[in-house]
Amino acid sequence: MSKIKSQVLKDIRDNGIKPTSKFYFVTRNYFFRLLFIVSVVVGAISFAAILQEMIIGSQFYKGTNLFEAPTLFVQSIPFFWLLLLAIFTGSAWFNYKRTDEGERRDNGMIVLASILFSLLFGLLIFRIGLSEDLDIMMKTHLPAYRLTAEQRLERSANYLERKDLNEQAKKALLQRERLRTLCLNYGHQNCFGNNSNSSAEVKENLE
């Protein structure tokens, strides 16, 4: 018996080494597949939220010129959701690479496929209105999130530098008022600042 063979067999015998159960490897494979799916779904939600925010922001586009529109477009991008989409695309790649079928796949193709799935599924979420529900829920329950959304709208309105509020800005502010009302109806007292004048101010401008 060769030296290596006798040493290996002795090692296996003396240390009681047994093959790891197949169940472990099968479970591990399914676990990473599941994480991949979860990552794609979160990516889809992020994309749907981006679409939702940009639809709100797009109200300022009407009547803008070619120079204003790109700046408004960039200002309306919710970078939080974009970052989340990027992170979960990376997570999808990481998890898929650890599956049996993914380990030999091209990295670029995996990233592209996960982005594509997220975009398609995100579009579906947006179309059925779930992104709007998510948007309202987050603006209702997360003051910091609501604040950043408001700041985005205000930046766009300020950029246009219209002394009189144009129709688009009015619509945006109307939505803000609608959200504030919803927020108060849920029993939150500090929505959009607990300032009863804010509602009056908006109404005055809308008249």
Binding site: I17, P19, T20
Partner: peptide, 22 residues
């Protein structure tokens, strides 16, 4: 070399269930 080879065979034995028939 002997140490590495020993480790390779022991590891392969331990992970034998992960051998993918594809």
């Amino acid at each position: 070399l002997e140490d590495i080879l020993q480790e390779v065979f022991v590891k392969a034995y331990e992970k034998s269930a992960s051998f993918n028939t594809s």
